[in-house]
């Protein structure tokens, strides 16, 4: 695939911007449109755009670990977010826990946020794993 110098240069700047945007979408999800699912998709689109411009190998180097590793990590975070009330407060699985004080920018922080972070990682991992695997074999 031949890529233009414009896309190549742009993608280097777009990757961090898109990633920040995806985190933004993830964090605002609780109050405004957004969330872990769509955030994860945007993050993976950012990486895929980078791989189109610079080649798959470069993107993989950037990622350090294989995107497949995001799956167990994300699942574990989500599961632990659900398990936390059971372990610490003897409440039913997936009960929402909330901090009393609000945090700057985020507002009130709760277990749902960690759950959403897990979703974000899993979705990102799934998309990248599938697309990387297929584009490697194509």
């Amino acid at each position: 695939m031949r890529t233009t110098i414009i896309l190549k240069t742009a993608s280097n700047y777009l990757l961090p911007v898109l990633l920040v945007f995806s985190v933004f979408i993830l964090l605002r999800g609780h109050y405004l449109p957004g969330g872990g699912f769509v955030g994860g998709l945007i993050a993976s689109i950012a990486f895929i755009l980078h791989s189109f411009a610079n080649g798959l190998e470069k993107t993989k180097e950037l990622l350090i670990v294989h995107p497949g590793f995001l799956l167990p990590v994300g699942l574990a975070i989500s599961f632990m977010a659900g398990l936390a009330p059971v372990i610490f407060f003897d409440m039913p699985f997936m009960t929402g826990l909330w901090s009393h004080d609000t945090v700057a920018i985020l507002g009130s922080v709760g277990s749902a946020l960690f759950f959403d972070i897990g979703v974000y990682l899993v979705v990102n991992g799934v998309t990248l794993t599938i697309i990387f695997t297929i584009s490697e074999s194509a």
């Binding site: 999800g29 609780h30 449109p33 957004g34 969330g35 929402g96 749902a112 759950f115």
Partner: peptide, 15 residues
């Protein structure tokens, strides 16, 4: 504690 109902359903009510 969420204003976006869709997301609250996803991560809490039907988490």
């Amino acid at each position: 504690h969420g204003k976006n109902v869709v997301n609250v359903i996803l991560v809490d009510f039907r988490g």
